[in-house]
């Protein structure tokens, strides 16, 4: 068990779950927490050189680029646009999680 992997996966999942809960019930705190966890996950993935790491970093950056404008739009009053951007970020977050699972399986097979 690797501590770093737990940390990264925790922030990835946290970003995904808060993202979903924001879409179903828009709330300022949830959105900000989504942005914070997503940015943390991206920073933790910086410089990762493993299998699928580039794809994961790219997916995470895409989610950031959806969520940061979503936060500003939401607090400027455009809730519907913020929600639709958050849905876009959700797609990227789901891909991130899937890639993380594939990477885990790959590294398990390679180590065996």
């Amino acid at each position: 068990m690797r501590l770093k992997k737990i940390m990264t996966d925790f922030f990835l999942l946290m970003a995904l779950t808060t993202n979903i809960s924001f879409i179903f019930g828009p709330n300022p705190y949830e959105l900000v927490i989504t942005v914070i966890t997503n940015l943390t996950a991206t920073i933790l993935k910086l410089g990762e050189g493993k299998i699928l790491a580039t794809e994961m970093t790219a997916a995470s950056l895409v989610a950031d680029l959806h969520l940061v404008p979503a936060a500003f739009l939401y607090f400027l009053g455009d809730t519907s646009e913020a929600v639709s951007l958050a849905i876009g970020a959700l797609a990227a977050n789901i891909i991130s999680i899937l890639l993380s699972i594939i990477e885990a399986v790959f590294s398990y097979l390679a180590e065996e």
Partner: peptide
């Protein structure tokens, strides 16, 4: 180059943590 980006992790996390803590 990608490996060297690792060096940015801790300072960026510090900035991010202080900003997130303050904003929340």
């Amino acid at each position: 180059f990608i490996e060297s980006l690792k060096e940015l992790r801790i300072p960026l996390l510090l900035i991010h943590a202080s900003m997130s803590f303050g904003t929340l």
